[in-house]
Simulated scan of single mutants.
Amino acid sequence: MLKSFDIYNQNNVLKIIVALNLLLVGTGSLLYTDRLINRLEDREEQYVQLYAKSIGYLFGSSHPNAGDLTFVTDQIIQANTTIPAIYVDPSGAFAAHKNIDDMPAGLTPEETQKFLKQKTLEMRKKHGPLIVDLGDGEQGLVYYTNSSLLRQIAYFPYALLAILTALGLLAYLSFSSSRRAEQNRVWVGLAKETAHQLGTPMSSLMAWVEYMRSDPDQFDGSITDEIEKDVQRLETITARFSSIGSVPTLKEEDVNEVVRQFTDYLAKRISTKVKMSVTSQLPPGQQVQINKLLFEWVIENICKNAVDAMKGVGELRLNMVSLPHQEVAIDITDTGKGMSKAHMQKVFSPGFSTKKRGWGLGLTLAKRIVEEYHDGRLFVKNSEVGKGTTFRIVLNRK
């Protein structure tokens, strides 16, 4: 059974832990603030009930306690400086109001009654009116809504959650940026060290090739030629690794010729049970601006990945076509095992591989070379499990 692995799983676990902590802090703040709001609402309701009773004492002339408590009730009414309230007398008139901050100045009595009526309709949506017992069977109503302080506290948890979300997002972006920078440094250092280490054995191999050429009777010339091609290939690989971390030089190249020459070389060095073919609908001499060494590396990585997917048996087809908007597409299609949608989303991720061997960097490097160095695109055009996969490279043409 194929196994998938990701060398950055530990970083994903860390991100999950950070996200869970932020969620716990936000949820705890929301619950605690909601509790405070409920307590304040109860307190304000009690306060308005006291306010309503005070109005009953003042406006109900037949109330048994009227007169004696006029001063006290007047003090209670004046003490309400935060809770918006409107008193409606038994006749339905708006007899008194407090703390209606948005009431325009200079209203006529009729306009005032109309404005207060609209405010009571808004207040009813939040709280039902409190009944004022005026005595002799008469009742008034007090409408009220939350104070500005209570409204501010109600919005506080959402503001806090927004701040925590923003901080979490900034932490995630900073972490991701730091990780990518570290990955880049590792890749560049590894690539340059590899290029340096290859230098010595290549020099030795070139010396052996020259020695073999000096004695054609003992060494078959065709074998020597093939060995020399492989040594030149090693030199190309060394040049590729050396160029990582620096901006490559792009030149106008015949894309038909570059692809055909490289696939001719590659076809002799992959499984003989893989049939490789190249077709082109591009005009002869079609020029694209590429770095030949790096672009061949892209083709090699995708083709070798395809050969592995086919387990060394199948067909590998390369097709070059023109696209609108001055673009050229190179489709690389295999008849391998294909990919699920989940694998298609992660196939270019560093460290992802369905093979037991390898670091899972080949397609990642290929995508970076195409998109960052050649201003192109590399993506999975289509894939079907059990039938194969098509990768598409898109480049700008002249």
Rank of each mutant, 00 (worst) to 15 (best):
R240K: 07
A93M: 11
F219V: 06
K387N: 07
P283N: 11
M339P: 04
F219W: 06
R392P: 03
A52E: 02
W297T: 09
M1Q: 09
R39D: 09
E296N: 13
Q286L: 11
I223E: 09
Q281C: 07
I227T: 06
P109C: 14
E235W: 00
L160F: 13
A79I: 07
R377T: 13
A239W: 02
L116F: 03
K398P: 02
V347G: 01
D6R: 13
I17R: 05
L14Y: 04
L161C: 06
R35N: 12
D34C: 09
A267H: 12
G358S: 08
R260L: 08
G351V: 02
Q139P: 01
I17K: 05
H374D: 07
N305I: 00
Y87S: 01
S322I: 02
K292P: 03
T335Y: 06
K114P: 04
K292Q: 14
K119F: 05
T236Q: 09
Y32E: 10
L69S: 12
G285A: 10
K251A: 08
I77N: 07
N184I: 10
T27V: 11
I223A: 11
T390I: 03
L250K: 08
G336Q: 00
S340V: 03
T112M: 14
Q286T: 15
V247D: 05
L395N: 02
L40D: 04
Q49T: 09
L363R: 00
A95F: 12
E257P: 05
K53Y: 15
S61E: 11
D308A: 15
S349F: 09
A181V: 05
K119H: 05
A306V: 00
K268V: 09
I330M: 01
A162Q: 01
I100A: 06
L198S: 07
G106F: 07
N319Y: 05
E315L: 06
I77P: 03
K15D: 06
V13L: 13
I393C: 02
N396T: 15
K117S: 14
L20P: 01
V13Q: 13
S280H: 02
L190E: 11
L58I: 14
D68H: 12
